[in-house]
């Protein structure tokens, strides 16, 4: 933790710094900069990193919620990790999580969010505000409320969707559990991408778009050559956050509870089921460790991309 809490070291002259300015453009100095960063890092360290490390340690024990191992957990080393790696349920969950992230985050939320932001970029008036408002509404409702809503919507017998489509008795949540949670999560999360891209598009100089249009660029060419390079950083940040959020999203549990037969048991639900429902905290913590490692790899990958911008 020493690294996170001590004042960050200032590199006096950094050749890579843009346009040769001093690396300390704000004139903060390392001491004051440290004081600026320290409260945030201290809080994160105490209430996020420290509990997380504790969980990592639990992953090396046979700690359980109940029974003899609850009182005196024994150190079992990597046994939990090996259990997970040789467990087909774990791999099934991993594969479902990949589908969930690609379907609802990368394709659903990012594409839909950007599309809405792009469609609305030069609009004003009630329709724009209505669309924005509704998208945001879907996102700000508490999960507890949202899950009631969707269960009511998708219900087999009394469901609103079946009544609207005229196919009473179609079991959406049983026949298409993954599709259901993907559509649900797209509905739920698009607002974040929309707002982020909305703000990002506001930073694209209109004059650049104007000259592209005058030069005869089509809509797609404008997007590809003017807009995307400008908002590359935002796209990557958005992809990173959305992927990680979706990866660890627990709300599918509220719709399908991982079922039927584990066909929508994404990793976050898997952890919850083994750790808190079956009480195997040690094994659950080990799976969490794997999740954390995957998150780290994804985060570093995006950060590399982000840094390589020229």
């Amino acid at each position: 933790m020493a690294q996170a809490t001590s004042p960050p070291e200032v590199v006096k002259e950094d050749a890579r710094t843009r346009r040769g300015y001093s690396s300390d453009a704000a004139g903060l100095g390392s001491l004051r900069a440290g004081a600026f960063v320290a409260p945030a890092l201290l809080l994160i360290a105490a209430f996020l990193v420290f509990p997380a490390l504790w969980v990592l340690y639990l992953g090396l024990t046979n700690y359980r919620l109940t029974g003899a191992a609850a009182a005196e957990p024994e150190f079992v080393g990597l046994a939990n990790l090996l259990d997970a790696v040789f467990n087909p349920t774990f791999w099934n969950s991993t594969w479902l999580t990949v589908q969930f992230v690609l379907g609802s985050a990368v394709i659903g939320q990012v594409v839909l969010g950007f599309t809405i932001a792009w469609l609305l970029r030069d609009r004003a008036g009630p329709l724009k505000r209505l669309v924005e408002g509704l998208v945001i509404l879907a996102w700000i409702l508490p999960s507890a409320v949202v899950s009631f809503l969707w269960v009511a919507l998708l219900d087999r017998d009394g469901g609103t969707l079946n009544a609207l489509l005229g196919i009473p008795g179609f079991p959406w949540l049983l026949d298409h559990p993954m599709l259901s949670i993907i559509v649900f999560n797209t509905w739920r999360g698009t607002a974040f991408s929309m707002m982020l891209y909305g703000a990002a598009l506001g930073n694209v100089p209109p004059s650049h778009l104007e000259s592209a249009r005058l030069a005869g660029a089509s809509g797609w060419q404008q997007l590809r050559d003017v807009v995307f390079p400008h908002i590359r950083g935002h796209i990557l940040t958005n992809l990173l956050l959305i992927s990680l959020w979706t990866f660890n999203d627990f709300s599918p549990f509220l719709l399908t509870a991982g079922g039927p037969d584990g066909r929508s048991e994404v990793l976050a639900v898997h952890v919850y089921k083994v750790a808190l429902q079956s009480g195997e905290l040690g094994y659950g913590a080990a799976v969490s460790t794997i999740i954390l490692l995957i998150n780290l790899v994804v985060a570093v990958f995006y950060l590399r991309l982000l840094r390589s911008k020229k």
Partner: peptide, 12 residues
Amino acid sequence: VIAVSMFPGALL
């Protein structure tokens, strides 16, 4: 910081 903040909340 980002990776840790994604840690499954139920276990924290």
